[in-house]
């Protein structure tokens, strides 16, 4: 269980995360959704100790992340941010092997190597294992990063926009993989997602943020509803049930929202 208690972050005068209190249940997939600038990524970064918080506490299985040893946390919780640009020239296998660092401290054992090969297999990277990262496409690189995090084999996996750069086929198989990690291995997966329909189809729990606050949370059925989505995104979104899942149809926009101006880069 991840307990987030009154966590805040501000840059100068602009408050990005505003007193968020939230409990993320163990096991299963929790997706965080919300418009740009809602504070989703900032919250995820603070929960995973990548970013210091101004106020509040985060506890992972009762362990306060502010006091816990970083290498202990690294065996319990892993984080992948979006936009990972890497200048170091490593092969896919070398990168994924570094996922074992918290366990092996740079001296991978035979068991560690098995983990690596399995993770490569899960992400369909067998054929690319000996290629250098700078020779891969964005989507292939994204899969390599996820393989690395998977290889870290932590109870908690936090992924910010894991579907970045992935085509439809790979996006679906990524979500199925994460679903499998949650169902078969009892992992707790926390995602930041932009596509509400992936969130709807694969999550057990959805958290919606806006303006640095959590404004709704609950099951996909409770959140993927026109009235709730309108509140989150300021957009009229029709919801249809397809294959038993609520699916938001947002491509066409709607009267009131369509007339609104595109917000500027800082809007």
């Amino acid at each position: 269980m991840i307990e987030i208690e009154n966590v805040s972050k501000a840059y100068g005068r602009s408050v990005v995360v505003d007193g968020v209190t939230l409990t993320l249940p163990s096991r299963g997939i929790t997706s965080i959704i919300g418009p740009n600038g809602a504070g989703k990524s900032t919250l995820l970064s603070m929960v995973s100790r990548l970013l210091p918080m101004d106020r509040g506490h985060v506890r992972v299985d009762g362990l306060d992340i502010a006091d816990a040893a970083s290498d202990v946390l690294a065996r319990r919780l892993s984080i992948l941010r979006q936009d990972n640009s890497i200048s170091v020239r490593l092969t896919v296998r070398e990168l994924v092997t570094f996922g074992r660092y918290p366990h092996s401290k740079g001296r991978p054992t035979a068991a560690d190597r098995e983990h690596v090969e399995r993770a490569l297999g899960y992400l369909g990277l067998d054929g690319l294992a000996d290629r250098f990262l700078d020779e891969l496409s964005g989507g292939q690189r994204q899969r390599a990063f996820v393989a690395m995090v998977l290889c870290q084999d932590t109870d908690y996996m936090l992924l910010d926009e894991p579907l970045n750069n992935l085509d439809m086929k790979h996006a679906v198989s990524m979500m199925q993989l994460l679903r499998g990690a949650a169902d078969e291995f009892g992992k707790t997966v926390v995602l930041v997602l932009h596509d509400i329909n992936f969130a709807s189809c694969y999550s057990d729990h959805i958290v919606a943020m806006r303006d640095g606050r959590v404004i709704h949370q609950g099951s996909p059925e409770a959140l993927i509803r026109p009235d709730v989505l309108a509140e989150i995104y300021d957009l009229d979104i029709a919801v249809e049930t397809i294959g038993g899942r609520p699916i938001g149809i947002y491509y066409l926009g709607s009267g009131s929202a369509r007339r609104q101006q595109m917000p500027g880069p800082n809007g």
């Binding site: 995973s48 690294a74 892993s78 941010r81 170091v88 990168l95 570094f98 401290k105 870290q152």
Partner: peptide, 18 residues
């Protein structure tokens, strides 16, 4: 290994517990 990890950037380094 530490230097290689550091070369991956601060976020990766922290994630791996260094």
């Amino acid at each position: 290994d530490r230097f290689t990890v550091a070369g991956l950037g601060e976020d990766f380094t922290t994630n791996l517990g260094l």
